[in-house]
């Protein structure tokens, strides 16, 4: 568990073994570029952004991402994955500060 709120979504909600489903990871993160001025203090807000994301399904890494500060605040990462039996889908993300966090859900195909 990280300090930030995050969410993993699978679409459709009900899926079968072998089905290719949409998987999205969202995290509440400011994605500061280091180029934005704070409205009150007029000082630059230091850069702070998610710099990598990794999807691991049943212990196997299926997708990794290098991420830079140009992604929007509260970023969303959407791709597909092939359902291959029940197991855990874990999303690990690291931030430019070095902090590592993870979020996981159970994959439970029906039929």
């Amino acid at each position: 568990m990280g300090k930030r709120k995050s969410l993993i979504k699978i679409k459709p909600k009900k899926y079968k073994d072998g089905e290719v489903v949409k998987v999205s990871f969202m995290v509440m993160h400011p994605m500061e570029t280091g180029m934005r001025k704070d409205k009150e203090t007029k000082k630059l807000v230091p850069a702070e952004y998610v710099n990598s994301v990794k999807f691991t399904y049943k212990g196997k890494v299926i997708t990794t991402m290098n991420v830079w500060e140009s992604l929007s605040t509260n970023p969303v990462f959407t791709t597909y994955m092939k359902i291959d039996g029940a197991g855990e889908l874990k999303v690990t993300y690291t931030e430019s500060t070095g902090e590592v966090s993870e979020k996981s859900i159970k994959i439970k195909p029906k039929g």
Binding site: S6, L7, K22, M26, V27
Partner: peptide, 12 residues
């Protein structure tokens, strides 16, 4: 809308 960041806020 499919991936609305506010889904996280609704959950919270």
């Amino acid at each position: 809308l499919d991936n609305n960041p506010a889904d996280i806020m609704v959950e919270s």
